[in-house]
Design a protein around this nucleic acid. Sequence first.
DNA 1: GCCGTAAGATGAACCGGTTAAGTTCGGCGG
DNA 2: CCGCCGAACTTAACCGGTTCATCTTACGGC
Lengths: 337, 337
Amino acid sequence: MTTRERPTLEAVARRAGVSRATVSRVVNGSTTVAVAIREAVNRAVDELGYVPNQAARSLVTRQTDSIALILPETANRVFSDDLFFPAIIRGVGSELEAADKQLVLMMAGSAAGYHRVERYAVAGHVDGVMFASIHGADPLPGLLARRGIPVICSGRPMLADPPVPYVDVDHAGGVAAALQHLITSGRRRIATIAGPQDMVAGLERLTGYRETLQAAGLPSLVAAGDFTRESGVTAMRALLDQDPDLDAVFAASDLMAHGALQALRNAGRRVPDDVAVIGFDDFEISRYSDPPLTTVRQPIAEAGRVMARQMLRLIAGDPEIDPAIILPTELIIRTSA
Amino acid sequence: MTTRERPTLEAVARRAGVSRATVSRVVNGSTTVAVAIREAVNRAVDELGYVPNQAARSLVTRQTDSIALILPETANRVFSDDLFFPAIIRGVGSELEAADKQLVLMMAGSAAGYHRVERYAVAGHVDGVMFASIHGADPLPGLLARRGIPVICSGRPMLADPPVPYVDVDHAGGVAAALQHLITSGRRRIATIAGPQDMVAGLERLTGYRETLQAAGLPSLVAAGDFTRESGVTAMRALLDQDPDLDAVFAASDLMAHGALQALRNAGRRVPDDVAVIGFDDFEISRYSDPPLTTVRQPIAEAGRVMARQMLRLIAGDPEIDPAIILPTELIIRTSA
DNA sequence: GCCGTAAGATGAACCGGTTAAGTTCGGCGG
DNA sequence: CCGCCGAACTTAACCGGTTCATCTTACGGC
């Protein structure tokens, strides 16, 4: 193991025959350095393989060039089947990479982990904190914001003591488009499988459903789910029990829609002939389901990118940050409805 | 915005009427502090909301308590449809969380990003670096190891100048079990859709296929893929062209197996009646494909956990690190074979 | 009553950078 | 020829912790 000592500024300075300060200025690209000296310093840097010590640097600059993304689920539940978080990570990651910032991923599921996130951020380990999805009335965003830490949320936070800027998608518009499509194609008994009601996404999609159907003078029929496939199966069964003659289902997530497809098949219903099904997300797998799923596409990766861009602005001290950015959703029509 | 100044050790010391050194010892849980003083200090810490400055701390301790996980794909390709990386992240994350270490996720796709990773690690931003999957003869693991940075790989690295400890799964055993199952159930013309040959996983699964079939005295038929669903579709079509009478396919990934199912359906073949299909991975979605996929389960999340544990040991200075840990694979029999 | 000792607290020297203030020196105007 | 100016470099003071050597104090043994 060639655990060679890491060279310090001091070492580089000695080798180049200049002072620490000069080396620092060369390394940081200052212009007021004579060409000859700059070259000598750069040579010394290369020869020694010098890399600045990040801890020392951020001790004085108060910057770390890394940004946290909080996944507020337990590490074990995140990613199990869901493609929401991967997409967010992808978007955020690509944008931060372009800005030469590092992405620090944190799972804040457990109560201990939750507190750990707070300490981590306050300790100055990161320049800012992004929340990938908020459950219930999470106090953490507000708490960090009050501590003076830049915060951006994906999804409107239910609780934000000092209001926190956020990026969200047009849930209501997406739902309305989906239901309109069902109504236009003649469906009249349209049920829904709702998402968790402690998340804004779940809440708004259900509200959108209720309002659209009411405006159309059609009856509502709701079953509760939690965005997972299993809950979709269970909810679909419950709906069929309550109204065996329903002719359409709007599920608040693609995974629940897949569960519904499965339950409908087992119940002997044909999709879309007997029952039309629409989901929400447009995950990759929905193109390959049987039948391919009609669904509301939400630009998740794009939301991640926008969130990252907002964060970079916030850190740069830009005073004009949109308090809310709402991205459009789009109905993708395939075979299931 | 309550951007209240962050209190320092000094402030706490003044308030508690003791020296900086004493506060430091209390904060770090030293035992040689009188109870009365310890309590006074803790009170001061609470009142001021003191949190140690991480940069200052790691400047002297040379520790950051965070560990990097490198995803060596471009940020845009990772996660697109694949459930491998999410599973690794899940395993690594849960284990590090338990050890109170932070996971830093890095995408090293672009050439620039690649160099960035090196600088980041050498700058001492993290205590160690884990590689989620190695493409080709990546020099980075060896390079970091030579710099004295703890490194663990998932998947045997093809190139490791100073040998780097790794965690992998029993590819050969899994492939053998799958093929044995096909042979036992009477299949004789068994083709394979291979993975990318610049990755050990792709390489070893193909080798396993060749050796097992040769030992059984059966002919080989290989089409190239790259682990994606699309490549599975293409490869399956090519295989059917070459041998319309094949009666089984072993795909080196679940995604490719799903592509094969799709291509077979389009070609009018029934699965498993006409052609048996086996995949490799056991992603969640494979339980819900049509028909449900028989596949080789590899414990991806477990590999992540083991990798994290090895890393923690390495950092703790444990001299006895297994240079290689191979986790068992298991054939999961469903309907497709 | 004196001394040795150990528990517990302190002062100060780091860690490795950044940067404001100070120094040196060549050149130019008067 | 002198003084002044600004460019370019150096000196030194931080940033906020950790830790070791040192000092203080209380106590037990003789």
